[in-house]
Nucleic acid binder design. Structure first.
Length: 525
DNA sequence: CGCATTTGACCCGCGC
DNA sequence: GCGCGGGTCAAATGCG
């Protein structure tokens, strides 16, 4: 980039010379000199371009070699002690280890090539977040090759999950083959989590994804058991969530998400995925998560924030919950500025409303472009209207579902969830209602203020965000945010029209009974 | 019968 | 080192 800028500057020189020469003499001889000069500069320019391309090519090669080198290193050291493992980890974190930096200039140049945040993030957030970003990368890798096709779906699922979301249980027991997956599994990564609190009458909050319950456990200090789910939309999807009712208020469901979807998401799921993705992005951007709960995000002051202003997402807090960097979105708190803050988030157990920015921030979290409306709509339908439950996404979720991608029809979703996946199943509302709702929303000063604030905050940080995203996640979310910002204004009215206040039954998703409640609604434990 | 859920056992990390 | 608690596995069970 800098090179391009230099080039463009260089290009301007001739014209300047031309101007001055015009003033001084009109003889053709001087013009010829100028032309010659121009030609020389063009030559220089082309040479620089060549050099630039050459360097870029070398960087690419180095990058590829670097990857291969890492793999080999990890295989070699697989059985080494933890300190060696740490070295490996460090090597994965660009710019994090001085030893790595000293290894060779190639890697150094590679780092230079990377975005600033890459380094910054790694330095500030440490392993967990770095791995978080990594998991994002490996998600796609996984699809390509990661898993043997001969393996049973269950095994694939398990390995992928270990791979990306948690420290594997079995690894210590099973053979350490030294392949990438095992190496990854050794990383005691504490992935970022996103916790969502919402009022939900159903067993779980319908987030648009397809989940399968794989365990239930009674957590200490909570009479209600915690249910564990994993995403089943893709056999190798590492995303998991656990759902638990708030002991203080049984109507509140706390859902915690962890991991990154490695498959396209239905529009309905994209809303939550986008939101959580952005939330985690915020988490990264804030860099300084505290060990104290109820950390109000926007008020966070960190070195990173200077470079990358925080998103103003209301009712959002960051903490290190159980060693996991966790960001909590509270959809239960009635908000400070308006009812629309329901779309926002806050922290639990002591929500700290952030006032005016909320609603829009959520809008911005929605998927880019055309899916914005539907995403938001879904989000609203299930988290505002329908129910009150809290969900927690751990980590990030891939937000790549193109608007034209076929909608995934979860086979296991009960009828009520149809609305989630097929817009045609959405309840219909009279145009009067829609118009009224639209008017109400768009005319609400709080909404307008929030929208303006959110857009300005996003646009204002645009450069920093766009240039500083370090991981794929960061890139994705930044891009989403920017897209959201750019489309927010034009789509606001459309969104408002899409708002369906209602009336739709609170969606409890396909997941089985939660918190000890049986499918029949009986409390079991 | 196939699939999802339930549930006890197990593993692992962490704090004391 | 030990116990506790979170998280996962996998056999048993239930349901459509």
């Amino acid at each position: 980039m800098a090179t391009n800028q230099e080039l463009s500057n260089t290009k301007e020189e001739p014209s300047l010379i031309l101007d001055s020469s015009k003033n001084k003499a009109s003889e053709s001889g001087e013009m010829d000199e100028v032309r010659e000069e121009n030609g020389r500069l063009k030559l220089v320019l082309s040479n620089m371009m060549k050099d630039y391309k050459t360097l870029q090519q070398r960087i690419d090669n180095i990058s590829a070699d670097h990857h291969q080198h890492e793999k080999n290193n990890r295989n070699d050291k697989d059985t080494a002690d933890s300190s060696h493992e740490e070295d490996d980890l460090v090597s994965l974190s660009l710019g994090r280890s001085s030893s790595l930096e000293a290894k060779n200039k190639d890697q150094l140049s590679l780092k230079v090539k990377k975005n600033d945040e890459d380094d910054r993030d790694n330095l500030d957030h440490g392993l967990a977040l770095r791995l978080d970003g990594r998991s994002y990368e490996f998600s796609s890798e996984h699809d390509d090759s990661g898993v043997s096709r001969n393996q049973s779906p269950r095994k694939i699922e398990g390995e992928a999950a270990n791979d990306q979301t948690r420290e594997p249980r079995k690894d210590a027991k099973t053979s350490r083959s030294g392949d990438d997956e095992n190496v990854l599994q050794q990383h005691p990564a504490k992935k970022a989590r996103v916790s969502v609190r919402a009022i939900c009458s159903g067993p779980t909050m319908n987030d648009g994804c397809q989940w399968r319950k794989y365990g239930q456990k009674k957590a200490k200090g909570n009479p209600c058991p915690r249910a564990y789910y994993r995403c089943t939309m893709s056999p190798s999807c590492p995303v998991r969530k656990h759902v638990q009712r708030c002991p203080e208020n049984m109507s509140i469901l706390i859902t915690t998400y962890e991991g990154t979807h490695n498959h396209p998401l239905p529009p309905a799921a994209t809303a939550m995925a986008s939101t959580t993705c952005a939330a985690v992005s915020m988490l990264k951007a804030s860099s300084t998560s505290t060990s104290q709960p109820s950390f109000s995000f926007p008020s966070t002051t960190s070195t990173n924030m200077i470079n990358s202003p925080p998103l103003y997402v209301p009712n959002t807090t960051v903490s290190t919950f159980q060693s996991h960097p966790t960001i909590t979105l509270d959809l239960t708190t009635p908000s400070a500025s308006s009812r629309y803050n329901k779309y926002s988030s806050s922290f639990f157990p002591t929500p700290q409303p952030i006032s005016s920015y909320s609603p829009v921030a959520c809008l911005n979290f929605s998927a880019p472009s055309s899916s914005l409306s539907s995403s938001f709509e879904h989000w609203r339908n299930h988290n505002v209207v329908s129910s009150s439950s809290t969900s927690t996404y751990c980590g990030t979720q891939l937000v790549t579902f193109p608007s034209k991608t076929p909608i995934y029809q979860p086979h296991s979703y009960p009828t009520p969830n149809k609305n989630t996946y097929d817009p045609t199943h959405q309840p219909h509302f009279s145009t009067e209602k829609i118009a009224a709702a639209t008017k109400e929303i768009t005319s609400n000063p709080s909404f307008q203020n929030a929208l303006a604030a959110a857009i300005s905050s996003i646009v204002g940080r645009g450069g920093g965000v766009a240039e500083s995203k370090e991981s794929h996640l960061g890139a994705a979310s930044a891009s989403n945010l920017m897209n959201g910002a750019s489309t927010a204004v034009s789509s606001i009215s459309r969104q408002a029209e899409n708002l369906k206040f209602e009336l739709s039954p609170l969606a409890s998703s396909s997941e089985g009974p939660l918190d000890g409640f049986t499918k029949k609604g009986e409390y079991k434990k």
